[in-house]
């Protein structure tokens, strides 16, 4: 892939991909284990998301709830302008997740989901309950922030991590890579609406840079599809519905995030992934 491909890349690939998909670039998982304290430099405090209560988005939502749509839209616009200059999370299909934990995303440890904890007061205490994966050498320091890693962590072999991802995929969870501190991919999440904060921020409030769409879209192969409907209900992005006229499912390519949950639910291999950039008008839809 040459430089000319940049136009149809998502911003993370452009900045961090070195010519390829950014989450396949080992550099974005590379992390040191130690740091010496620079004289005069104070450690940045970890806030654990508590600042979210006073965030711009919270002000925007309160304005919207009070009927002040102008203020709401203005704040959302400002957040988007700022987010456009930074990396964010991205949706990716199960197979990419598995490749990642088999190869470059080590170490990998299962842990609780901070979104579900925040939104539904979930407490995940063991491997039977954990639903998120933490990546990188920072996981060796998890005990430093026991509240962030509430319920502990469990380091996994690549095979265990793949099984873990498959399990949550079956349960209908969307996979995404989350970056921390600009360019370091620190999490491989299994997410669903409404618990998941990034999905919600994008779908409900148009904070499109917080969660970028996947590299592909899903497409139905109507020759193979028998209309069984196994895929219905898997989509969290309002892209997939049952179309009565043809008695088969319909996927809106503009709405599709390429999470491939509909595909992994299909027993007839009737849904396939198509690279976004293959379609003239989709290559800019991230």
């Amino acid at each position: 892939m040459g430089r000319e491909a940049l136009d149809d890349m998502c911003r993370m690939c452009e900045w961090l991909g070195d010519g390829d998909i950014w989450y396949k670039n080992p550099r974005n998982y590379a992390n040191r284990m130690y740091k010496l304290r620079e004289p005069g430099k104070k450690a940045t405090p970890f806030t654990g998301g508590a600042e979210g209560l006073a965030s711009g988005l919270n002000r925007a939502i309160q304005a919207k709830a009070d009927g002040d749509l102008e203020t709401y839209q203005q704040i959302i616009k400002e957040i988007n302008e700022r987010d456009a200059t930074r990396p964010g999370g991205q949706v990716l299909p199960l197979q990419d997740c598995i490749d990642l934990v088999r190869d470059i995303g080590t170490p990998v440890a299962a842990m609780h989901c901070i979104c579900r904890k925040t939104t539904r007061a979930e407490e995940e205490q063991s491997i039977n309950e954990y639903s998120c994966l933490g990546l990188g050498t920072g996981m060796f320091k998890w005990e430093r922030w026991p509240e962030r890693y509430r319920g502990g962590v469990q380091f996994l072999t690549p095979e265990q991590a793949a099984e873990f991802l498959e399990y949550w995929d079956q349960r209908g969870m969307v996979h995404m890579v989350m970056q921390e501190g600009g360019d370091f991919i620190g999490g491989l999440c299994n997410c669903d609406y409404p618990d998941c904060v990034p999905i919600r921020q994008r779908v409900d409030y148009g904070l499109n840079y917080r969660l970028t769409k996947g590299e592909n879209i899903c497409e139905v192969d109507y020759e193979r599809c028998n209309g069984c409907g196994e895929c219905l209900g898997r989509c969290q992005f309002n892209a997939l519905k049952y179309e009565a006229t043809i008695d088969k499912p319909n996927i809106d390519p503009m709405m599709c995030f390429g999470c491939a949950l509909c595909m992994t639910a299909c027993n007839r291999q009737a849904i396939r992934l198509v690279p976004r950039r293959q379609y003239a008008a989709l290559q800019y839809v991230w």
Binding site: P26, R27, Y29, A30, N31, R32, M33, Y34, K35, L36, R37, E38, D103, I104, G105, T106, T137, P158
Partner: peptide, 22 residues
């Protein structure tokens, strides 16, 4: 390797480009 360099070099952290199973 980090200890060796951090202890003897004028850096506060070692720039890691890749650390994976590879």
């Amino acid at each position: 390797i980090e200890i060796a360099y951090l202890s003897t070099q004028p850096v506060y952290s070692l720039p890691i480009v890749e650390n994976s199973g590879r």
